[in-house]
């Protein structure tokens, strides 16, 4: 088991967002997390990544046999957790090259490896840039500064390729993408899939799942996973809409 989440509760400024999430992810699996707006999908991603503004009030998260909640953001990243941001941050003055070189070498240091030399690093960059069709022009610019929505998302996938995470969480990577960019992003993910890593793909729409085929689909609603299934569940959701879930939950008397 790569990741095991049990009864996870999390809140921000006293407001509970996650109300008991339980989810297991094995190596080699792709899990899609779906659900309407404001149900806690991004919060789940942030809590796994370790964003400090969220308070975990109950439950546990075990990752590679370790208590993940005890680790700082950067330690989680060095242990192989990657978050593809829904809104990648612009950092004027920091070039992508320099950013990635620092990240790669800090992760290597954590693993007891020697830093990558300039030549080896640039070679690695060239290779990964091709994977996501990132132009050299973009790589020399400041991180995300003045990038279009599509460029920002490509840049996220590029970083993921550079860092080779064990668990990658993609938070609405498809939002704001045209069909070509979507294909590039999905191709990048598919090329990076191995039997040793896992993906959590957070999305609103079924569309992305035509390209990244999930092993499991979970529906998050009001802070809980209310339905899990295979890729067919995504199609069913596409057909029936989230109202279907809402009505079903109201019928159970949980929501409201």
């Amino acid at each position: 088991m790569l990741l095991s989440i049990k009864n996870l509760h999390a809140s921000i400024n006293g407001k509970e967002i996650l109300k008991g999430i339980t989810l297991d992810v094995n190596q080699g699996e792709v899990h899609a997390i779906m659900g309407p707006n404001g149900t806690g999908k991004s919060t789940l991603a942030s809590v796994i990544a370790g964003r400090e503004v969220f308070d975990v009030t109950a439950g546990e998260v075990i990752y590679k046999g370790k208590n993940l909640l005890k680790l700082a953001v950067e330690e989680r990243a060095r242990e192989g957790i990657f978050l593809g941001f829904q809104y990648p941050v612009e950092i004027p003055g920091v070039s992508i090259t320099n950013f990635m070189r620092t990240a790669v070498n800090e992760i290597r240091k954590y693993k007891g490896l020697d830093p990558l030399g300039g030549g080896a690093f640039l070679k690695l960059m060239e290779e990964k840039k091709k994977l996501v069709e990132l132009t050299s022009n973009l790589a020399n610019r400041s991180v995300n500064e003045g990038f279009s929505g599509g460029e920002k998302k490509k840049n996220e996938i590029f970083q993921m390729a550079m860092l080779e995470p064990t668990l990658a969480i993609l938070d609405e990577t498809d939002s704001g993408l045209d069909i070509d960019a979507l294909r590039v992003v999905a191709n990048g993910v598919n090329k990076l899939r191995t039997k040793d890593n896992a993906f959590m793909v957070i999305t609103h729409y079924q569309r992305l799942l035509d390209y990244i085929v999930p092993d499991f689909v979970h529906v998050l609603f009001e802070g809980r996973i209310v339905k899990s299934g295979t890729k067919e569940l995504a199609l069913e959701l596409e057909e029936k809409g989230y109202d279907w879930i809402r009505k079903e939950q109201e019928g159970k008397g949980i929501a409201g």
Binding site: E52, F85, A103
Partner: peptide, 10 residues
């Protein structure tokens, strides 16, 4: 947060 999420120390 963005930098740290990529493994860069505080």
């Amino acid at each position: 947060y963005y930098l740290r999420q990529r493994g860069i120390g505080e």
